[in-house]
Nucleic acid binder design. Structure first.
Lengths: 344, 344
DNA sequence: CTACCTTATACTCATTATGAGTACAAGTAG
DNA sequence: CTACTTGTACTCATAATGAGTATAAGGTAG
């Protein structure tokens, strides 16, 4: 959500009503040197519509912009334009994520009842140099979600998280009656027989928020965390932007399973290893190289170019190109499409 | 999109701006006697915020309600409440679909620049009797999308649609330069090697709209269709509600592939055939009975109750129950989960 | 040049999943 | 009883998947 501190009350149609602000946020992802990255802007720009607002946070924020009901033809165009102004980037692949208007979730909603509605977008692109507009930077996604990167095996942090969550669920269940927290923890973090489901990024973040473990819970209340683990649960972001980022990361991970979106993240021509690394970076999982190659080749998703890339450090690899025609040939890629491995 | 005819201009924060209305629409689906059904309301209720507005359409509309920025805590709660008031139904499973604010898409946006932003939701439930509030009725989904029901084999209508689309694409490509329409037609309607992808409901509807074949295109312009096929392309709905319905139907179809949502549509205990029919109704595809049973049983999604249902007309069938625990055991159902058949 | 590092690519193999049947079980209607 | 209905168990060929082994083709250190 993005909004100014304005809490003014407007009048229209003869009746008084609190001001409603519509903000657009963009989760813009890329992969550089096999790391998933997200485009962020500095906090001083984090105001909407009200240029005189002071920074409300020192954390990074997602690029965003106000929706201008007078001039913007569609939400998406407005978002593209805002991103272009704010970061100098022209977006390609874009999809809508989610719309929130939860009361009280955005601390910038004044007590006067002003309301913020925010529409989140996801964009994928090949990382390029930033035009250096304002304070835009690429940040490593897994700095915000250290528990989501399983490429090096199960992160040690997971054990601690589970312990902290079980601890919390024990306390809560004593006071209130509920006993479903255990089940949620099991499902989210793949305990028991479940296995890790890379897709559930948002569910995990929200559980951690509810358990009062992530920093934002305390920042939203201007208090200090009670648990020492909070400091190691990734960098916080401004407002509820980490939650939006979680939504976006989860969405790509899910979409990769049935649509060839990975190609949005890599150059026109690429080696299969590069493609594999992009998929792995986003999914946070490692895959079997030979089988990955078999999958990609047999799915008809790529065409060999005959050219090779020399700088591999070993035998030169062939350069491939995405075969758009595949969309016409195979029933919605999803049968034999590119996707991350099942789980560790 | 839902909005009143109001085109008033408000003032707030010292500057003048056009009024922004936020409307919520719900695609509420159920399955009765093996038919997918959608909950609709009469057109006379199709006004938002402005009770004196006259009906703008004689078609059915989706249930909806205005978002009250003052009182509603979240968008979802507001939608649930609006549906309860309008149809007497308490929703269970709900997910957000999409948010639009396209200028000019909603004819109720006055020329004065008033703006409508609408948030769509999807809800699944077991159809029950309606409390008869206002003018709520269940309608057969495939009356709105006759080309989406392949349970009896490829609908004859498809050939006609393809012919009309090819015709249109030929004309368009002559005047403008574009030549990608053929490809879109192929992808959407599964021509060539592609096969039918049940998921692409929205893509197909939008293509038909663009090709000026569906009735709404002409209704939006207060003109009469030029092609005789328009009369057979399903019933129109009010405003852009058929488009929203397409989004919803596509979403469930997609989601069924990797989440056990079909259980939302049937009673607590059910025979496997009933489950199968629910899946088939939504997906619009037939599946192999024995294999369906194998899939469901082996996935661990259901538990036998030991009881049987007698009224089957043949050998009594065992009654099963959804096993929620499966969510904890299998990695995100999607591996061996319930899903519609690949395609015909 | 050779030995040895790297990464690329081809092929094998056991296991499991899928699509399409056949066969038989257990009710109802006549 | 027989005919007809729907449910349920198995079979079987084929395809997809997970996990290897083997070999190719480049680099560099000695």
């Amino acid at each position: 959500m993005s909004g100014s501190r304005a809490s003014s009350t407007g009048t229209a149609g003869g009746q008084s009503y609190p001001k409603l602000l519509v903000g657009l946020n963009a989760v813009i992802l890329a992969v550089t040197r096999d790391q998933p990255r997200v485009l962020t802007v500095g906090p001083q720009t984090a105001s909407l519509g009200d240029a005189s607002a002071k920074p409300v946070s020192t954390s990074r924020a997602l690029p965003f912009g106000p929706f201008d009901r007078e001039h913007d033809r569609t939400l998406e165009l407005c978002m593209r334009e805002a991103v272009r102004k704010q970061t100098g980037i022209d977006l390609g692949y874009v999809e809508q994520l989610y719309t929130f208007a939860d009361k009280g979730r955005d601390p910038r909603e004044g007590s006067g009842g002003s309301r913020v509605l925010s529409v989140g977008y996801l964009a994928l692109l090949q990382e390029g140099p930033l035009a250096g507009v304002e304070d835009a930077t690429w940040e490593d996604c897994y700095e915000f979600f250290p528990w989501e990167d399983w490429r090096g095996g199960k992160p040690a942090l997971i054990e601690e998280i589970e312990a902290a969550l079980m601890d919390w669920s024990g306390q809560v269940e004593q006071t209130s009656g509920g006993s479903d927290y255990r089940e949620r923890i099991d499902i989210c973090f793949g305990r028991g027989d479940a296995g890790w489901d890379a897709y559930q990024v948002l569910e995990r973040y929200e559980l951690l928020y509810e358990a009062k473990l992530v920093a934002e819970y305390w920042l939203d209340r201007s208090q200090s965390p009670t648990s020492p683990i909070s400091a190691r649960l990734g960098r916080p972001m401004a407002f509820d932007h980490r939650r939006i980022l979680a939504t976006g990361l989860g969405r790509v991970r899910g979409k990769m399973r049935y649509r060839p979106v990975a190609f949005e993240l890599i150059p026109e021509t690429f080696t299969l290893l590069r493609l594999q690394h992009a998929v792995e970076a986003i999914s946070g999982l490692r895959s079997h190289k030979q089988n990955f190659r078999r999958l990609v080749e047999r799915s008809g998703l790529v065409d060999g170019t005959g050219k090779r890339e020399a700088k591999t450090g070993g035998r030169p690899a062939e350069l491939f190109r995405f075969r758009r025609a595949v969309l016409r040939e195979r029933r919605a890629p999803g049968v034999a499409t590119l996707r991350p491995p099942r789980a560790p």
